[in-house]
């Protein structure tokens, strides 16, 4: 099995990579630190799994060479599982890329990273509800300090491909429940 770490630039993919594999990929606080992919090995339930740190990309429609590397990496690994790393303080843009990858049929896990930054900005995310709507594991993390990494690893095997239609109907259902709940 192969796992790809994907997400926007500067959401902390390399931090995850180093945490998960014990490798030494350069981490910085600016977008575009990783311009080429790096492979490493991690253990899930005692099995060796290959993990790839993919350069950041905004969408599957590449704008520069680093993004081309990212998209090519995804398309070359049809059987791979994707950990979609999302900056929790910019969740909407992150979900766009995640949805694109879901639509292509890849099994996905979402890591809502930088929860601390989002909290500083007073943004609160209901991860459980998001998980119910998307029907894939959603884990809140602060990769720099290691929070949530264990949970992420333990839930990687729950990743599965989902149909966007199901997500749409889940979202509609959730909205109905929410509306019903508002009525006293």
């Amino acid at each position: 099995m192969k796992i790809l770490l994907m997400g926007h630039p500067n959401v902390g993919k390399s931090v995850f990579f180093n945490r998960l594999t014990g490798a030494n990929v350069t981490e910085s606080n600016y977008p575009g630190t990783t311009v080429d992919y790096t492979k490493g090995w991690m253990k899930i339930d005692g099995k060796d799994v290959e993990l790839v740190d993919v350069p950041g990309t905004f969408s599957l429609d590449p704008k520069d060479k680093a993004e081309e590397v990212a998209v090519a990496m995804l398309h070359e690994n049809r059987g791979a599982l994707v950990i979609s790393v999302i900056d929790a303080s910019k969740i909407e843009r992150g979900l766009y890329l995640a949805l694109e990858i879901i639509e292509e049929g890849y099994p996905l896990v979402i890591a809502l990273n930088m929860r601390d930054v989002a909290e500083d900005k007073n943004i609160l995310i209901d991860a459980d509800k998001l998980e119910r709507i998307l029907d894939i594991p959603v884990v809140s993390t602060v990769a720099i300090s290691g929070e949530g990494i264990k949970e992420l690893v333990s839930r990687v095997k729950e990743a599965k491909p989902v149909d966007v239609d199901d997500i749409i109907s889940n979202a509609t259902k959730a909205a109905d429940v929410g509306a019903a709940g508002d009525v006293p």
Binding site: L95, E103, I123, K129, L130, A171, A175
Partner: peptide, 22 residues
């Protein structure tokens, strides 16, 4: 199934309305 960019943003909008409080 694939969505158009517009449909995708629309869906994200609905999801975030349910899950995110600013």
């Amino acid at each position: 199934m694939k969505l158009s960019a517009e449909e995708r943003w629309d869906l994200i909008d609905r999801i975030s309305k349910e899950t995110v409080t600013f």
